[in-house]
């Protein structure tokens, strides 16, 4: 599908600034940082998670392990026919039981991914708490879910799409609002 870029709402500088701000909030809220573990949701949640973990280490000299969660098998929209979704590996090499889990995704939209991610986490163990961090909250929630840390609130229409691009996978850091093009 052709896409048309409508706006570039964040660049590398802005992304870094909001990650730094959220890191401070995390540190303030979590007295026992040694009990904190980071779980990034595939794909871009992983890289945001790794950056946050590094920021925590720089500031507090605490190592927070980062795990990877693939929520494909927990999705609630399987029967909606379309292209197949490839399952990838969940790689969480530590126990989540009794941990404070910092769950990370790039964009928060309907809330369904987060619901699936929480189900998945509970199959892996029983965390003491789960906190949610997202870079963008674009609204339009369909479930009672909210983020504990938000990089940027971004009001959008449902037709628009929000694309978070990170240099680990996409050449550069930026957040774009796009729209499907070519609909006459």
């Amino acid at each position: 599908m052709e896409e048309k870029i409508k706006a570039r709402v964040m660049d590398s500088r802005k992304i870094n600034r909001s990650l730094a701000r959220m890191t401070t909030e995390i540190i303030e809220r979590n007295r026992d940082l040694n009990n904190l573990v980071v779980v990034g949701i595939r794909t871009r949640g992983i890289y945001i998670g790794k950056r946050i973990s590094k920021l925590i280490k720089d500031l507090e000299k605490v190592n927070t392990p980062v795990g990877v969660l693939d929520i494909t098998l927990y999705r609630d929209d399987f029967s909606e026919l379309e292209a197949q979704h490839m399952v990838k590996k969940t790689e969480i090499k530590f126990s989540v039981t009794d941990k404070d889990v910092l769950l990370i995704d790039d964009v928060l939209f309907t809330g369904r991914t987060i619901r699936a991610a929480m189900d998945s986490l509970f199959d892996l163990g029983r965390p003491r708490s789960i906190q949610l961090l997202v870079l963008i909250d674009r609204g339009h929630r369909e479930l009672p879910i909210r983020a504990d840390y938000v990089g940027k609130f971004l009001p959008t229409s449902k037709r628009e799409m929000v694309q978070v691009r990170l240099k680990e996978v996409d050449e550069e850091d930026e957040v774009l609002i796009t729209e499907p093009a070519g609909i006459e």
Partner: peptide
């Protein structure tokens, strides 16, 4: 089983 029965879905919207 997954690829035959489950794997079909629209791109997750968030």
């Amino acid at each position: 089983l997954y690829l035959l029965l489950g794997g079909k879905s629209r791109e997750m919207s968030d």
